[in-house]
């Protein structure tokens, strides 16, 4: 489907926020789902780029992306009023917890955007939501004001230029020591971060869901390009179609 660009703004170093409008099943979007966006107009680019849905209203879709290569660079340069060819919403999103569960949301860098949509849903379910977002440095931080309206937000930066110095796991440990308890953890970010969280909570009853990222080709489950191994060693799971969100007890990170 073709969606029109309503806004396209740089919001941090190498990070852009694009808002789209047009015919799209907005009401069906689950937090954690993504869209596949076509790049360019000719046949130079054959693969769409998977980008998670950061926010959705009844008539708008917002994505946040980091410019990492040619495709995302092209997206960052598209003007308001131009159209993007989009497939979606795709994949399986985050299962929501029962009401009043104690929930921690952990985001790493450009893994944070889908957690915004998730947290806005969690806000209605849980009275005090804990949010930890990690960035490398202050210039890469984005949407901290928006996230802070959804829960108790802790920001970390590797260099200490904003928030707490250190990584998200340091912050999570600190919160645990000061008495925080959680029933559910939701995370999206670099794989080492997800693995660290998975290991940290492995001996506990905390239920966790992680959203994974991988280079994709089809985005719909047909090509087996993006896969992850599972602990029961069954046939690999497809991140695009069986995920991108997985129970952290299920996957090998």
């Amino acid at each position: 489907m073709l969606l029109k660009i309503k806004e396209n703004n740089q919001i941090a170093q190498n990070v852009w926020e694009i808002t789209l409008a047009g015919q799209f099943p907005y009401e069906s979007v689950q937090p954690g789902q993504f869209i596949m966006v076509r790049i360019g107009r000719g046949s130079e680019h054959v693969l769409r780029r998977p980008i998670s849905i950061a926010a959705v209203t009844e008539e708008r879709l917002t994505i946040v992306l980091r410019v990492v290569g040619e495709g995302t660079k092209w997206l960052s340069k598209q003007s308001v009023g131009e159209q993007l060819d989009v497939l979606g919403p795709l994949g399986r999103g985050f299962p929501l917890p029962p009401s009043n569960a104690k929930v921690l949301v952990v985001g790493g860098g450009i893994g944070s955007p889908p957690l915004y949509l998730l947290s806005s849903k969690l806000q209605a379910l849980t009275p005090d939501l804990d949010l930890v977002l990690g960035f490398r440095t202050k210039s890469e931080c984005f949407w901290t004001d928006r996230f802070s309206q959804l829960g108790n937000l802790v920001i970390t930066t590797d260099d200490g230029s904003a928030g707490r110095a250190g990584n998200v796991l340091d912050a999570v440990e600190g919160m645990l020591q000061s008495g925080h308890k959680w029933d559910y953890v939701y995370a999206c970010g670099p794989q080492p971060m997800l693995r660290a969280l998975q290991q940290y909570f492995s001996e506990t009853a905390v239920q966790g869901y992680v959203s994974l990222e991988e280079r994709m080709a089809c985005g719909v489950g047909a090509c087996y390009g993006c896969v992850c191994r599972t602990k029961d060693d069954a046939f690999s799971k497809r991140i695009c179609a069986d995920g991108p969100v997985f129970d952290w007890n299920e996957v090998i990170l």
């Binding site: 993006c226 896969v227 046939f235």
Partner: peptide, 30 residues
């Protein structure tokens, strides 16, 4: 069944793509 190759298994190049899926498939019986 075959798990196939490690990821990344796909990459875009100008006017095309590279893949190294590695014959991942659920096997004859499935």
């Amino acid at each position: 069944p075959r798990q196939g190759n490690p990821t990344p298994r796909v990459a875009e190049v100008t006017g095309g793509m590279l893949n190294a899926i590695g014959l991942a498939n659920p096997g004859l019986e499935a």
